[in-house]
């Protein structure tokens, strides 16, 4: 072969179709925005029903997670995600999809080693690094507060 690795890498890049960034980003914006609007509606409803701010927020998350689980179960979430990309990935509904889909997929390997063990195969890192970051923040906060007396 006449090409070096880096020359071939450049040629391969040239021949590989690029994602339609403009369309993808627009779709992500629209769908992601719509999911957040749905969240806002839920938040307003829960607040109207008299729950406090924090509880309303939790109930909103729980409801969105539930809706995402149902749509994932019917195979609808991934159909939308194909077009929406990060629009369905970044909201909490995407987190729910990442938990529910392996739970469904690995049912054939049993409820313990399949569903139970693999449920966090995609979403696990989010919890691991979210918790780790928040713990680091907590320790720093504690030290700062202690130094200030």
């Amino acid at each position: 072969m006449k090409l070096t690795e880096s020359e071939y890498g450049r040629l391969a890049k040239l021949r590989s179709p690029n994602s339609n960034v403009l369309r993808n980003t627009a779709m992500a914006f629209l769908v992601g925005g719509a999911i957040c609007c749905a969240g806002q509606a839920l938040l307003n409803i829960y607040k109207m029903l008299g729950t406090d701010e924090i509880t309303a927020g939790t109930l909103t998350s729980v409801t969105l997670v539930f809706l995402s689980a149902v749509m994932t179960g019917f195979g609808l979430y991934d159909k939308i995600a194909k077009h929406a990309g990060a629009g369905t990935l970044v909201p909490i509904t995407g987190f729910a999809n990442a938990v529910v889909s392996p739970a469904m997929e690995f049912k054939t390997e049993g409820y313990v080693l399949g569903v139970g063990a693999k449920i966090f195969i995609i979403a696990g890192p989010v919890i691991v690094y979210g918790l780790a970051a928040s713990a680091v923040y907590g320790v720093i906060l504690f030290i700062v507060r202690a130094m200030r007396g």
Partner: peptide, 27 residues
């Protein structure tokens, strides 16, 4: 809610399309 939420997602999409970041890394 629509504009800010949409913007967060749009940035995520740009990271997917323009960098080699996998969805898990983005999250």
């Amino acid at each position: 809610a629509f504009l800010i939420g949409g913007a967060f997602c749009a940035v995520g999409q740009l990271l997917i399309d323009l960098t080699a970041m996998t969805p898990a890394r983005i999250l």
